[in-house]
Amino acid sequence: MATVIPLSGAQAASSRLPHAASTTLPPRVEEERGPARGRVFEAISRSEAFPSEIHESLLAEPAVVEVRDFRLWYARKQALFDISMRIPRGKLTALVGPSGCGKSTLLRSVNRLNDLVDGVSIEGDMLLNGDSIYGRSVDVIDLRKRIGMVFQKPNPFPMSIFENVVYALRIDGVRDTRVLEEVCERSLRGAGLWDEVKDRLRESALQLSGGQQQRLCIARAIAAEPEVLLLDEPCSALDPIATGRIEDLIEELKGDYSILMVTHNMQQASRTSDFTAFLYLGRLVEYGPTNDIFLKPRLRETEDYVTGRFG
């Protein structure tokens, strides 16, 4: 039951920083972008707080999830520092950053999956469509029913394709076959899998290929019409062709669902997402429209990361 966040790796990265800064930051031409330029990593290495660079265009977006001063510890190691961000409704937001930066931790905090991990403690709160996620009176089970999640590796249940898709409805005790079949077809169509499996819904989901399994997991996640869809590197375990299909699918889902996606793949983030947040060592560094983050980021650190100068 443990999600291991490689904090030691993060520490190693931070201890490397002064050296990295001296070798990878030669004098630049455009020096006039802002006062925080190039200072963020320095601030982190001195464990000082710094304001996240959040682009103004985000403020106009209605938020489906709002993160408020969120901090998280694995035992005594702090993994997230004062994260505040609004995830826009009906858009795809990508979380990027090097391994161990806390993007998966942040994602798993939205549906409180980190509750299952021993020794996790948090401060701050998140709101799902205005409702507190970490408030005292929150029923976690009800909360999770409002959120869909797709994991790194396809993880279908050892049951039939049909039962996998309608799992969320079974939890709620839905017995009406007509309803179940309807939801099953709609979800599988939504996940672009219907034509491939419609004749073998009663067969084991484990017989599907990896890419099909992942689309099944997406169908399972959208069956209960979640208010937000969390994708945790949904393509990282798939081959390029399956990855292409999932990306097309995510593209299609974008209008209907609010999606928060963790990805390691810069091209994927730039191709598919509307907004991109760059996290580093548990801090939110810069957050804005994907085009701006990739083409004219405000911080040098963001630019270095998205262009592959470090990572």
């Binding site: 299952l116 029913k145 993880n155 050892p158 996640a221």
Partner: peptide, 23 residues
């Protein structure tokens, strides 16, 4: 990961154990 998938869909621990883990 399949326990997490079940929990993430809003299943209780008991439901997860009976319907997913044990099978």
């Amino acid at each position: 990961t399949i326990r997490e998938a079940s929990i993430a869909l809003g299943a209780t621990r008991a439901h997860t154990i009976m319907k997913v883990v044990l099978p």
